[in-house]
């Protein structure tokens, strides 16, 4: 008898494709948040498969802190161009200029928190009723209880204690005017699944994920990239190292890994033997034990 089973990557793919199609069917004006990191690249790849041969029926939106790796922006623009997808870019700098957000000061300053203001303004201005994100339940404990379809009130707030139960394949996207949903199509993927799928599907990734020589400095045990807007503290010095990104975010809070991995197979090996989580290098999570929960409640990704 024939064996009708599919492997774990194909099952995760089928689940995510189902979610993406539900979004297209249930919402009038959805948008896909795109950071240029591996999770959003995989999410977009899944969306292309879900609607093939039609184009992806929603735009991509990047909340740009202005503190990016140049490679991220180049990769983002080329991907949107080559796939004929509409790309919306909203700038944190604009939120600062018009007084909606206030820049942090000092060497630890980051625009990561300010993104929430820009994001919520963009959702309101563009009248998006759903914003898809590449968040995964395994990456941070405040995300572990996040729903696939996560309801946000008219202030963009998340109420983790009062979430709608999610059963079977039945997703409730009902809402009142002014409210919106965050949808996380790759909720059930782990970091390892993401890399294995990238290998399986041969998905092109920014060079930042592979080993490269870069000018870096060490702060609180984390390697950070040299950049014009990064202020050094006394005792910190710039040196050249072979590094790669394990996550890609705002340059001010993206920790780099000393690594010589230059192929997907190498990266998978590295993930397999790694003893710290990928967010272990994220300065934004280290601010307090509930840093992610606090940001998410306010409307962060």
């Amino acid at each position: 008898m024939e064996k009708y089973t599919i492997n774990h990557l194909r099952e995760l793919e089928a689940e995510s494709v189902f979610i993406l199609r539900e979004v297209a069917a249930q919402f009038e004006n959805p948008v896909m948040l795109f950071s240029g990191g591996k999770d959003s690249i995989v999410m977009f790849h899944l969306a292309r498969k879900a609607f093939f041969p039609a184009r992806v029926p929603f735009p991509l939106m990047h909340i740009d802190t202005g503190h990016n790796f140049d490679e991220t922006i180049k990769f983002r623009d080329e991907l949107a161009e080559s796939t004929g997808t509409r790309l919306i870019v909203k700038y944190v700098q604009d939120s600062i200029n018009n007084g909606r957000a206030v820049e942090e000061k000092g060497p630890n300053a980051s625009r990561n928190m300010l993104q929430t203001v820009t994001l919520l303004d963009a959702i309101e201005d563009e009248k998006f009723d759903c914003a898809m994100g590449g968040g995964r339940r395994d990456e941070e404990k405040a995300r572990a209880k996040e729903r696939f379809f996560s309801h946000r009130d008219e202030f963009g707030q998340w109420d983790p204690k009062n979430q709608r139960p999610e059963l079977w394949n039945l997703f409730n996207g009902k809402k009142n005017v002014g409210e919106h949903f965050r949808v996380f199509p790759i909720s059930n993927w782990t970091e390892m699944d993401v890399w294995q799928y990238i290998l399986l599907e041969n998905i092109e990734m920014p060079n930042l994920y592979y080993t490269h020589e870069r000018e870096v400095f060490q702060r609180d045990g984390v390697w950070l990239a040299k950049a014009p807007f990064m202020e050094l503290k006394p005792g910190e010095k710039i040196e050249k190292r072979k590094v790669r990104c394990r996550t890609i975010g705002d340059i001010t809070c993206t920790g780099l890994t000393l690594s010589t991995a230059n192929s997907l197979e190498d990266i998978i090996q590295e993930v397999a033997i790694s003893r710290v989580t990928e967010r272990g290098g994220r300065a934004d999570d280290k601010r307090s034990e509930a840093a992610m929960e606090d940001r998410k409640k306010e409307g962060y990704f």
Partner: peptide, 16 residues
Amino acid sequence: GLRAEREQGITIDVAY
């Protein structure tokens, strides 16, 4: 990981 859960030592919800 939710603050209320840690403070009260309870599990509010399904954890994956």
